[in-house]
Amino acid sequence: MISSDSMRGYNDAIILAVLARGDSYGFEISKAITAGTNDAYTLRETTLYSTLTRLVKSGALNAYAGELSYGRPRTYYHLTGIGRTILAAKKQEWHQVQGVVTHFLEE
């Protein structure tokens, strides 16, 4: 299990990457992350929600009321143009970070 400290800074990018595949809602995003990392990384519900809230505020995502879930409307999230730009920048940054860390840790 990867600690949340190690992943801090990349939660935004991971969520944006999940939403780049299509609109989704809170628990589905969380499940996609857990499944995509073979259970190595799980986002806590409050971390996921606070990250989604920040991304909506920054314009990277749009939130809208979707289908009913157990009697309540689910909030769905849609990746915006700004979100795609941020995701692209994050990908580029990740390649640089990966190169630097690999250089020192895999010598």
Partner: peptide, 9 residues
Amino acid sequence: DLLAAMEDH
């Protein structure tokens, strides 16, 4: 939203 996510979970 948190309640919806918790119920889904």
